[in-house]
């Protein structure tokens, strides 16, 4: 358990009580958790902080789940979104945002399943990110910048990719 990765999770749902318990359970497992009670709030938080996985409720007042996860991916392209729905229309939802969401799940979700899927999403995120990061780093080295320039460019990259 101890060498499990710490995953930065963003929870987005207008059901505050649900987020309260869900975040307690995920925190207890050692993950970093932030809760947002609307799509707007989530976007605001994502502008400030990096996350690995977002869990987004489909049906929310204001910006709905599909829209929210699209916006989140614009801000943080490597972020993986798991979309929850209390609705039977998973398939329709899937169609409208297939290319963006990591997975759609029906509420109430089985907690163990959810944790497994979060881990899978995290893995995908790290892999795609790593590949891209390596490409970028290589590009910087090839670009012929001086040592100082390279250091600066990489610091810039680290910020974009949320890597410390």
């Amino acid at each position: 358990m101890k060498n499990q990765p710490i995953i930065r999770i963003l929870l987005v749902d207008d059901e505050e009580t649900l987020l309260e318990y869900l975040s307690k359970r995920l925190l207890k497992m050692g993950h970093t958790v932030k809760a947002a009670f609307s799509g707007e709030q989530a976007i605001e938080v994502a502008n400030r902080e990096h996350f690995d996985v977002a869990i987004v409720d489909l049906k929310m007042p204001g910006i709905d789940g599909v829209e929210t996860q699209k916006k989140l991916k614009e801000i943080q392209p490597f972020l993986q979104c798991i979309v929850l729905t209390g609705h039977g229309s998973t398939e329709t939802a899937l169609k409208s945002g297939q290319q963006d969401a990591f997975q759609y799940l029906l509420k109430p979700v089985n907690y163990d399943d959810l944790v497994a899927i979060i881990k899978k999403a995290y893995k995908k995120k790290s892999q795609t990110q790593e590949v891209k990061f390596k490409e970028e780093v290589e590009r910087i080295y090839r670009s012929g910048l001086g040592a100082h320039g390279i250091k600066k460019a990489i610091a810039e990259l680290n910020k974009i990719y949320g890597i410390d």
Partner: peptide, 10 residues
């Protein structure tokens, strides 16, 4: 489903 999800997590 929503209250059920809460009961589940709680």
């Amino acid at each position: 489903n929503n209250p059920l999800a809460i009961i589940n997590e709680a």
